[in-house]
Design a protein around this nucleic acid. Sequence first.
DNA 1: GTAGACCTTGACGCCGACGTCAACGCCAGG
DNA 2: CCTGGCGTTGACGTCGGCGTCAAGGTCTAC
Lengths: 144, 144
Amino acid sequence: MRIGELAREAGTTTRTLRYYEARGLLPARRGENGYRRYDEEDLRLLRQIRLLQDFGFELEETRPFVDCLRAGHPSGDSCPASLDVYRRKLAELDAVIGRLQEVREQVGAQLARAELEVSAAEPPEPRCEMTQGHERGADDGGDD
Amino acid sequence: MRIGELAREAGTTTRTLRYYEARGLLPARRGENGYRRYDEEDLRLLRQIRLLQDFGFELEETRPFVDCLRAGHPSGDSCPASLDVYRRKLAELDAVIGRLQEVREQVGAQLARAELEVSAAEPPEPRCEMTQGHERGADDGGDD
DNA sequence: GTAGACCTTGACGCCGACGTCAACGCCAGG
DNA sequence: CCTGGCGTTGACGTCGGCGTCAAGGTCTAC
């Protein structure tokens, strides 16, 4: 299969495949005409790469998985090096998520405080107090 | 105060301050010698910027806060435009955090599965089966 | 034979927030 | 006067993962 076909199969672009090859991640055999040739195995490798990329892994971090598959293992994470990447990534994710949650709380608190101060500064719209003995008919008019 | 001094006060660099000025975010008055001159107000603005930057806001997103302060408001988030940024940022944070948690679960699950498969594949270390009638002395060896 | 769809390499562009260097000006202390 | 420490502008480098040309070669269908 040629580069465009593989790209389509994997939902990516030829530029990306050439980039991977340049990085030594997914080298291709060459036909007589100099065109890159790929097989089903390459498609597997590529799918592994894309999956991890979608997870936010850097390209270099996908290399152990690719190497693992290429070594004949059933899946990309059948090798210790891949598991190490998983573990590092988990720790990294936890750190980032924790930091973002912290930020989220800070920003949320700031927003709440700022909104309060704004509403305190402008006291309009008395919010329709319910005075006693002031009931209305059946259709009391939608308040929305 | 001069640029180096302000940078030190705010825990940043002169390069950063020049960058902010180039972006129109923190323009400086000039002394006779062409040196940039800053005052305490600029320090406040700068601190507002740095705070938001630490939160992961892009520079452009800090602009409403800076403008707000410069307009004489008590704090950078006393203006509607700033609140809008807060809200957009919250939504963004929630989305990112959600996505990362999703990824974290996926990666965690993959790791667990892969570890299981590995331990299933290599049955070494028989984990010291207790054969009957093979008891040892008092100190039976800490299993860690 | 020619259009058009594919392929090749090479190289620059992009994004954001600066870092880093070059080459120069200004000013205070000894 | 000279050194050293500040300042100035300008411009290129960084990082990742490609996008997007440009200028050509190849192959297929009509």
